[in-house]
Design a protein around this nucleic acid. Sequence first.
DNA 1: CCGAATCCGTGACGATACTG
DNA 2: CAGTATCGTCACGGATTCGG
Lengths: 122, 122
Amino acid sequence: MSYEPDWNVLTSTCPSRTSLARIANKWTAMIVIVLARGRTRFRDLKSEVEGISGKVLTETLRELERDGLVSRHAFAEVPPRVEYELTDLGRTLQAPLAALGQWAETHIAEVLDARERYDEPQ
Amino acid sequence: MSYEPDWNVLTSTCPSRTSLARIANKWTAMIVIVLARGRTRFRDLKSEVEGISGKVLTETLRELERDGLVSRHAFAEVPPRVEYELTDLGRTLQAPLAALGQWAETHIAEVLDARERYDEPQ
DNA sequence: CCGAATCCGTGACGATACTG
DNA sequence: CAGTATCGTCACGGATTCGG
């Protein structure tokens, strides 16, 4: 669990970059932000992360499950019910990704101003 | 500068989501991590962010400049020299994105273990 | 030579239809 | 309801060329 300085995301062949690619992603950020509130069913996740398609939600959840960040709980019912929740490892991502979401919301006014200035040089 | 609760990255039409999409990105994260060390020229940026193509680096820097996170300084020399640095706004992103990079490096062993378990169920 | 534009292939993403 | 499958589109990303 100690920090391993040999791993460097800036090195193209370093495995840590594959992990960065997964977590530095808008869908991942939004899904983790919602899952931070607690165990959530697929359907609710889909409606809370507005605009995500079922396909992309499924794929992203699979990758997060594969990386050990999310656990999947399926119930043998009709209609089916599947719930997802953050693992202990996933919960360590909660704060960093919530910070990104907060940043976007807090600084969007400055960003929009900058875009205006950039888009109309005159 | 106060937090504006009307802005919500989970809402598909909220402008803050476009900002999240830009910052929750692996290339953005790596570029900001390198720029955090100080003003850097294009060529050095390209070699420090291993594996990034010139095209993607140019495009990402343009978008970061447009969003007011990075400033561009071009010199009329031969060969050309262009330097990039974080703006004040961009520096507020330094900590959150460095945290993501740190997370990837710190937890990669656990992630790799999880992948192994997921990929060979037996 | 460095920075950026151009060309083009691949893969991500969304929409729809269908199954258990 | 929770996927899976298929397809069409389009942005991302790499290789190459251009410009200064």
